[in-house]
Computed example of a mutant assay.
Amino acid sequence: MAEADDTVEIYEPPLFEPGDKVRSRFTVKNDGTMWDAEIGEVVVHKGDEGYVRDVGTYLQRYYIYAVEFVDRRRIVGMRGRELVGLDNKEGTR
């Protein structure tokens, strides 16, 4: 079942903070927002690990996490539901 996208995430604290180690739950393709990749090109593979560099918002509803995937030499904006925390900190989902 698909997750409803009507939640306003910014009413709660972000799931991740800068410096947190995370893993991608999905393969992610360029949707046209990355200048250095063709549209449709895979920019992150499921299981890739990286570090949150910054936390921003989109449409005053969602957190967007700028994740640096060091092995891929890319910084990719991702939603919290696309990530798994690896830092074993209390509260990391």
Rank of each mutant, 00 (worst) to 15 (best):
H45D: 05
R81S: 00
I64K: 01
R25M: 07
L86A: 09
D31G: 15
G32M: 10
E3L: 13
I64H: 00
R72T: 08
P13A: 06
T57K: 12
R74Q: 13
G47I: 05
P18M: 02
G40H: 07
G40A: 03
E12R: 13
T33V: 06
L86R: 10
I10K: 01
Y11H: 10
D87C: 15
K29D: 05
Y65E: 00
M1C: 11
K46M: 11
D6E: 09
R73W: 10
G19V: 02
V22E: 02
P18S: 03
T7Q: 10
Y63M: 06
M34D: 14
G80R: 02
G91T: 10
A4D: 11
G32L: 08
E3W: 09
R23W: 03
F69A: 03
P13Y: 01
E3K: 14
E9D: 15
K21C: 05
Y65A: 00
E9I: 00
V84K: 14
D5M: 12
E3D: 06
T57N: 10
G19Q: 09
I10V: 14
R25H: 03
P13S: 06
T27H: 06
D54K: 15
R23M: 14
L59N: 15
Y51T: 15
I39Q: 15
R23L: 03
Y65D: 00
D20M: 09
E9H: 07
E12Q: 12
T27N: 07
V8H: 04
E41C: 05
K21R: 15
V67C: 01
V22M: 05
K21P: 10
I10G: 03
R79E: 05
K29Q: 09
E41T: 04
D20Q: 08
S24K: 08
S24C: 11
D87V: 03
V84M: 13
K46R: 15
N30R: 10
E17N: 13
V44R: 00
R61S: 08
K21W: 07
T33Q: 10
E41S: 06
K46Y: 08
F16N: 06
G40S: 05
L83R: 01
E82D: 11
V55E: 04
R61D: 04
R53W: 06
V84T: 15
S24T: 14
P18Y: 06
G56D: 11
L86G: 08
G80F: 02
E9Y: 04
R79V: 03
R72N: 13
F26E: 02
D36P: 00
G32N: 12
R81P: 00
V84S: 12
E49H: 04
L15D: 06
V76C: 00
F69G: 01
V28Q: 02
T57E: 12
Y58P: 01
I64S: 02
L59W: 10
V22C: 06
K29M: 07
E90W: 12
E68V: 03
D36H: 09
R25G: 04
N88L: 09
K89I: 07
T27Y: 05
R79F: 14
D5W: 12
V43P: 01
G40Y: 07
T33Y: 11
W35M: 09
R53S: 08
R79I: 02
D31L: 08
Q60C: 04
R93I: 12
Y58S: 11
I39M: 10
